[in-house]
Every structure is written in structure tokens, then in C-alpha cells.
């Protein structure tokens, strides 16, 4: 019997490969299906073939021809980036304080922020709707950015404080001894070391904002601020007899691309073990 770490037998390899294959197919098949649908023309849409007989970019042309989608895409990108940036900046500061300082009410603060994350969002939709209408930010970018920040912050604080705790405190003391002000110590020593954490958090927050449907559908009413997930539900065919499945699939494929780019871009910056060598290890 080959134990863990022992020589792998061919049988074992085949077994694992099969299992991996099953998992990968299970996870990616819906994506493949959407991709397939998006590449079919409206006539062959319902023919049931996984591989389209002929590749047609008709759906893509159609969605980019409508302001409905293009505007939604711009909204999505703008809102997600702004919300991510703000949440990460505030999250970094809060997480640093939580990881480093002992102040009265620290545990309460952490608890409350967790509570926000646990709260069922759907129960907040109606009050938020009323509040935003009262404040006049209903159906505006800030109207979506604000709730996104609120719900992303606990996530950001949690992830980031874990990263900050990993950074040896002595580095900060060393920086102070070397003549740095607290601000310089944070900027030149702590922040560069926390960068992998910041990027990880940015990815998570961005995905959260990008994928949100509930707030997007409830707190918007026009193209002015509707994001793609919400806009998709308003897709209709070019006539009422046409199935919008093709356009929806094409749009779904298009909005996946920024996420992939975003992750790939930041992943390079997430260098594991960046702090190794700081202290004896």
C-alpha cells in the first residue's frame, strides 16, 4: 500500500485523473453550454447540439449594438472598481488597526462587522429602497456603491487583518528605530508586505460587486445605473417572438471576461511567502 507521499502507482494516477476530470467537467460544463449557445445563430439555438454546426457571432454583434448592454457594462465596470477601491482602502486601515492595536470595543467592532456580513441581504432591500429614495440616490452609481462597500468591508477587514497579523511586528519597530515616522513605517514596510493580502481582498471584493444581482435589480430602475447582471434579466429578443437566450448567453460570456482578466492581473502580484526571510524562519 502506497502511503501519502510514497511512490505513486499508475493505478492511483489514473484514479485521481478520472476524479479530477469529473470535477472539472461538472464545474465547467455550464460555462461550455453558455459559450456554445452564445455562438449559435437564432435559428439553430434550440437544436440541442453542444457543438454549434456553424459558428456565428450574431449574438455578440446584437448585444453590442444595443445601448442597453453597453451602458450596463460601463456601469458594472465603474461601480465595481470604485466600490472595490474604497472598500480596500478603508478595509486596509481598519484591518491594520484591528491587527495591531488594542483599543476598547475592538471585539465589538469585529463582531458587528461580521454581523453585517451575516445579515440576509434580501431583508435589507426594502429599507434600502426607501432610504435611497429618500436620499435621492436611488438609481444612481452611489446608490449601488454604498451598499456594496457596506457588505464588502467585513470581508475585506477579515481577509486583511489575517494578512496583517502575519507580518512580524518587529519589522515595524525596526522601521521606527531606523528613523521612520509611523506613516513611513506603514507605507514603506508594512504596506508592501501586505500587498498580496490587499490584492487577494481586491479580487474577492471585485467579484462580489461584479456578480451582485439582488441590489442591482432592486436599487436601479433605468439604464442610468443598471449593471449587467440586472440588465440581463431585461433582455428581450429583437421581436417578442424571439428567444433572448442567445443574447443572454453572449452577454454572460462577455461579463466573465473582466473577472478573468482582473484575477490574472492581480494573481501575479500575489507572491506567496513574500515575508519569508524577515525574521528567523
Amino acid at each position: 500500500m502506497a502511503g501519502i507521499g510514497g511512490a505513486e502507482t499508475t493505478q492511483k494516477k489514473v484514479g485521481w485523473s478520472l476524479l479530477n476530470l469529473v470535477v472539472v467537467i461538472y464545474a465547467l460544463f455550464p460555462v461550455l453550454w453558455i459559450l456554445s449557445l452564445s455562438l449559435k445563430s437564432s435559428k439553430t439555438l434550440a437544436d440541442g447540439n453542444l457543438i454549434p454546426r456553424e459558428i456565428s457571432f450574431e449574438n455578440y454583434r446584437n448585444i453590442f449594438a444595443t445601448t442597453e448592454f453597453v451602458r450596463a457594462l460601463a456601469n458594472s465596470i465603474g461601480i465595481a472598481i470604485i466600490a472595490t477601491a474604497i472598500a480596500v482602502v478603508f478595509g486596509t486601515m481598519a484591518a491594520y488597526a484591528i491587527a495591531r492595536l488594542d483599543f476598547p470595543g475592538k471585539n465589538l467592532l469585529v463582531g458587528v462587522s461580521l454581523l453585517i456580513a451575516m445579515f440576509p441581504q434580501v431583508s435589507l432591500v426594502s429599507p434600502l429602497f426607501e432610504i435611497e429614495r429618500g436620499l435621492g440616490i436611488f438609481d444612481t452609481w452611489p446608490g449601488l456603491i454604498l451598499p456594496y462597500i457596506t457588505f464588502a468591508l467585513p470581508l475585506a477587514i477579515y481577509t486583511l487583518s489575517a494578512f496583517f497579523r502575519e507580518i512580524p511586528w518587529e519589522l515595524e519597530k525596526a522601521a521606527k528605530m531606523d528613523g521612520a515616522t509611523p506613516g513611513q513605517a506603514f507605507r514603506k514596510v508594512i504596506a508592501p508586505l501586505a500587498a498580496p493580502g490587499v490584492f487577494t481582498t481586491a479580487i474577492l471584493v471585485f467579484i462580489f460587486c461584479w456578480n451582485d444581482f439582488l441590489f442591482a435589480i432592486s436599487l436601479t430602475s433605468t439604464e442610468q445605473s443598471r449593471t449587467v447582471p440586472a440588465a440581463l434579466s431585461f433582455f428581450t429578443g429583437s421581436s417578442q417572438f424571439e428567444d433572448p437566450a442567445g443574447s443572454i448567453s453572449a452577454a454572460a460570456v462577455v461579463i466573465t471576461i473582466p473577472i478573468i482578466l482582473f484575477v490574472l492581473f492581480f494573481q501575479r502580484r500575489i507572491v506567496a511567502g513574500l515575508t519569508s526571510g524577515a525574521v528567523k524562519g
Partner: peptide
Amino acid sequence: RAPKDRDIAMVFQSYALYPH
């Protein structure tokens, strides 16, 4: 005075080198 204004240097047990 803050550490930076005391003009003294310190060597830490863990060395506390800046890894980046």
C-alpha cells in the same frame, strides 16, 4: 521623544530585516 528622534539603532533578536 519618539524612537526616530533619539538617534539610536537597534538590532533585534529576530533581525527584523525588510524581506522585500
